[in-house]
Design a protein around this nucleic acid. Structure first.
Length: 152
DNA sequence: GCCAACGTTGGC
DNA sequence: GCCAACGTTGGC
């Protein structure tokens, strides 16, 4: 089993939004970065767990834990001209973008701020805190996962 | 296949 | 709102 981190701007989709969905489950659409797509399409398995991270907001932080409840399938928003995530070059017969379903497992007992994550030497290889990192979906190692959970 | 220009991300 | 860092685009 692998571990992941999912970034979302809370103004667009927050952990509260996920919590309010039926079965606390939603599809993680709109990923339009090839590296992040490859993680979702090729490596995520049902039952993998991930952190839910709030970005681009007053206090960027890890706020919860999700679980992959459905493995990758085509992201239809790429084919919908009305969607913000529409990609005119995506071909229905050869989908370019994928999404997975995630289910909220629980919120963390406390949000762990980005500011704090940066300070731990144990996390210096954690992609989230690497300078200039822009991946919206990224892998978390088992040791990073455990370390972070001990800090909640 | 190079690389400058551009748009986006995201912490601050 | 700023701006550094990055991925993508497209002319050549």
């Amino acid at each position: 089993m692998k571990y992941w981190l999912f970034k979302s701007e809370p103004d667009a989709f927050s952990i509260d939004d996920l919590a309010s969905m039926p079965r606390k489950t939603d599809h993680w659409d709109g990923v339009r970065n090839y590296q992040a797509r490859n993680f979702m399409r090729d490596e995520m398995k049902k039952g993998d767990q991930g952190f839910f991270y709030h970005s681009n907001c007053a206090e960027p932080a890890i706020v919860g834990i999700v679980e992959i409840s459905r493995e990758a399938y085509p992201d239809r928003t790429a084919l919908d001209p009305k969607s913000n995530y529409y990609d005119s070059k995506s071909d229905p017969d050869n989908p370019r973008w994928f999404m997975v379903d995630v289910k909220l497992v629980r919120r963390l007992k406390r949000a762990i701020p980005f500011r704090e994550l940066k300070e731990y030497s144990q996390l210096e290889d954690f992609p989230l805190v690497r300078r200039g990192n822009r991946l919206s979906v990224m892998p978390v190692t088992a040791s990073q996962w455990k370390f972070i959970l001990k800090k909640e």
